[in-house]
Amino acid sequence: MTEIGVFPKPDRKRPEPLWHQAEQALRSLIADGTWTDGTQIPNEELLSRMLGVSRITTRHALRNLEESGLLRREHGRGTFVRSSTMIAGVRGLTSFTQEMANLGLVVGSRVLELGEVSAIPEVADALEIPIGTPTVRLRRVRLGNKAPIGIQTVYMPLARVPGFVELAEPAASLYDTLRDRFGITPREAREVFRVGAIGTAEADLLEIAAGSPVFMVERITSDAIGPFEYTVSTMRGDRYEIRSKLHL
């Protein structure tokens, strides 16, 4: 079990709730590498004593960190710092970069391909353009805290993003680039999730064994004019989760 490190303890004189202060204190231990991926953290009782708060307060903080994807609880074993994980669920229309930032992960990308291609039927149908229309294809490995999470291939009509291929920093946030350089602001998106097994080539890029389970996600994003982005993603099954809340 990992040792608890140095952190700012909750202060009852501060206006923030104790559970929030406790959560931030524990989050800082993960962010600075004191608690590394895969290590077991102290139990609730020990954490409560070290934090100087009740077990209910500690439990609240731990639950929030678990829901954020930073911790995982294993029945009968304890609580562990989990590998960089992205959680999908009910959320706003945001970019991968923003979603990662919201989870407290350091986003990164490695560009595999950037160029112009003619739209094949699948792409043309998604973007509502004729087959053979010039498009931009951007293929990247997406990283969270330097660990590969998924491979994303983006298609955009060239007419909507002229000069995109010549950009000096294609790995920056796509939606920021589209907004700032091309005046494109997303309004809605449709996503389809499937589960499959990964092939050898993509498995090597994601640093997992061929045949491992992955999420395959298709996303069509539109602005006021119409579809401008068709993205096909292959996400690691152990670093990508889908959560939702159900109501009557």
Rank of each mutant, 00 (worst) to 15 (best):
L248W: 11
N64G: 00
L127R: 09
Q98T: 11
L103K: 12
E207I: 03
H60R: 15
L71V: 07
I4A: 13
I120Y: 01
V106K: 14
I149A: 03
F228T: 07
G92T: 06
M216W: 04
E44V: 15
L46Q: 15
V90R: 12
V217W: 04
V107R: 06
S118I: 02
A119F: 04
T36D: 08
I198T: 02
V232A: 10
E113I: 04
F228A: 06
E122W: 00
A210F: 01
Q24R: 14
G104L: 10
H247Y: 11
L138T: 01
A126C: 06
D176S: 14
R137V: 13
D32M: 01
G226L: 03
L105Y: 04
H75Y: 09
G183F: 06
R14P: 00
L26W: 04
I208E: 05
D125P: 00
V195E: 12
M216V: 15
T153Y: 01
E191S: 13
T97F: 09
S212D: 11
M216D: 02
E23A: 09
R219L: 09
E44N: 11
V161W: 04
V195S: 11
A61S: 10
I208D: 01
L174I: 13
L70H: 09
V136A: 04
L70E: 09
P42L: 06
E229M: 13
V154D: 15
P8K: 14
R219T: 13
G33P: 08
M156R: 06
G115L: 04
P8N: 12
I198D: 06
S233N: 12
V136T: 03
R190Y: 10
A147V: 15
E229D: 09
T39Y: 03
V165Q: 07
T185H: 10
T85N: 06
E166Y: 04
I87M: 09
V111F: 00
A31C: 02
F228D: 02
S212R: 07
F7D: 03
E207N: 11
R142I: 12
W19L: 03
E202A: 12
V111R: 14
E23H: 08
G132A: 06
Y240S: 13
T221M: 08
G199F: 04
E74R: 15
D125H: 11
K13S: 15
T221I: 10
R55L: 10
V90L: 08
L143N: 04
T221R: 02
F182R: 09
G196E: 10
R137E: 14
N64E: 14
E44S: 11
V165G: 05
M50T: 07
V123D: 05
V107P: 05
E16A: 15
N102W: 03
R139Y: 01
R219Y: 02
T94P: 00
T79L: 07
